[in-house]
Simulated assay, not measured.
Amino acid sequence: MLFEKIVRPALYRLGKNDPETVHERTVRVLGRLGTVPPALAALRRYYGTDDPATVFGLRFPNRVGLAAGMDKDGRALAAWPALGFGFVEVGTVTKLAQPGNPRPRLYHLPDSEAVINRMGFNNSGADALAERLATQGKPPVPLGVSIGKSKAAALEDAVGDYQASLRALYPHADYFAVNVSSPNTAGLRALQDRSALTDLLAELQRTSGALAADAGREPTPLLVKVAPDLSDEALGELLEVCDEHGVAGLIATNTTLARDGLAGTDAHLGKEVGGLSGRPLANRAREVVRFVHSHTGGKLPVIGVGGILGAHDARLMLDAGASLVQLYTGFALNGPGLVRTVARGIAAP
């Protein structure tokens, strides 16, 4: 297709192979593409896959979603479904607009089919995303919004910070992902501890219930995104808290601080600070999904993400217990052809 053969190589040339520049240019191009209905229709005919599934009360046209981080501010919402995604997760967004960590902060590890990032929740803020969604509308597939803690907010103020994002975006999201697992915001992973997570989820569920009642509808599903670096004991405690507070599902997993599985000339980049994603994360992500599925008796839906670079990887994730899968690094490295390959490769016969 045109994107893989012409557009994507041109973006890499213009970006001088700087991964973040390529990322920014890609989202910008896709944002413009979203304003051209004939182009969207042509892409949808080629990339689209019909494999419907209903998970935590939402109907998905297929089981392959775009993970948070690719389109933090929702700038290309019309394009992602046309490229074959069955759902889209934007963010991670924070109450306050913030630039994120200093650049360079994104590294491509080609021999390992991996990426290291320390972006630090760079985004324009929850209010800006809410305004864009109110003006431009939602995509024609389920929309998830990943919310996180503003860097400027102290841990003791985290609950109010998350609540502000939830309130601002509540009219627009089909589900919320509570991101307490990014390694790139200092102290954030402490919110996965039992006491902190209990306080956070209790208040977010209370706020969600009140907002839903005011709107005369059912509460929007809340999901929790977990780190792959938790021990089984810590993950078991987290699942108990999620059960106590009616969490609708889990996203497993975020990026890892581990550096296992780096290949070839990538070893020197392994020293860079940040979260590792891609092929080296695949086994651990599936282990976490399998643990959650087993520990909850399959009653808690899981979105599996981490190291999915082909249909076989996605099938293994579903076999481990995931109900849906998300792509990020695989899409960034291989383009939208991967979405088509994965979605059709796991489609029900």
Score class of each variant (00 low, 15 high):
Gly264Tyr: 02
Met119His: 01
Pro104Gly: 08
Pro219Tyr: 12
Pro81Asn: 00
Leu250Gly: 04
Gly304Arg: 03
Asp71Ile: 06
Asp232Ser: 12
Asp50Ile: 11
Val178Pro: 01
Phe331Asn: 11
Pro38Glu: 10
Lys225Trp: 02
Phe291Glu: 06
Gln326Met: 13
Gly69Met: 04
Ala190Trp: 00
Leu129Met: 03
Thr94Asp: 02
Glu4His: 10
Lys5Pro: 08
Leu300Phe: 00
Glu20Thr: 08
Pro37Ala: 04
Asp161Pro: 02
Arg340Cys: 07
Thr296Ser: 12
Leu201His: 10
Ile303Ala: 08
Thr220Leu: 01
Asn179Phe: 05
Arg344Leu: 00
Ala168His: 06
Arg32Val: 10
Val288Phe: 04
Glu156Asp: 14
His268Trp: 13
Val288Gln: 05
Met119Ala: 07
Gly69Lys: 06
Pro52Thr: 08
Ala158Met: 07
Lys138Gln: 14
Pro139Ile: 00
Leu166Ile: 07
Val289Gly: 04
Val178Ser: 09
Leu250Asp: 04
Arg28Phe: 13
Thr35Lys: 14
Arg105Ile: 02
Gly304Met: 02
Arg217Met: 03
Arg290Lys: 14
Leu43Asn: 05
Ala42Val: 13
Arg340Tyr: 09
Val289Trp: 05
Ala128Glu: 14
Leu66Trp: 05
Ser181Cys: 04
Leu222Pro: 03
Arg259Gly: 09
Gly91Lys: 08
Arg340Gly: 05
Met119Leu: 15
Leu33Asn: 05
Leu83Thr: 12
Met119Val: 13
Pro301Ile: 09
Leu230Thr: 07
Ser124Ala: 15
Pro336Ala: 00
Arg194Phe: 11
Phe85Ser: 06
Gly84Leu: 08
Ala263Val: 12
Gly74His: 05
Leu230Asn: 06
Thr256Arg: 12
Ala76Cys: 09
Lys72Tyr: 08
Ala252Glu: 03
His172Thr: 09
Asp71Tyr: 08
Asp214His: 13
Asn179Glu: 11
Lys149Ala: 05
Asp199Phe: 12
Arg132Glu: 08
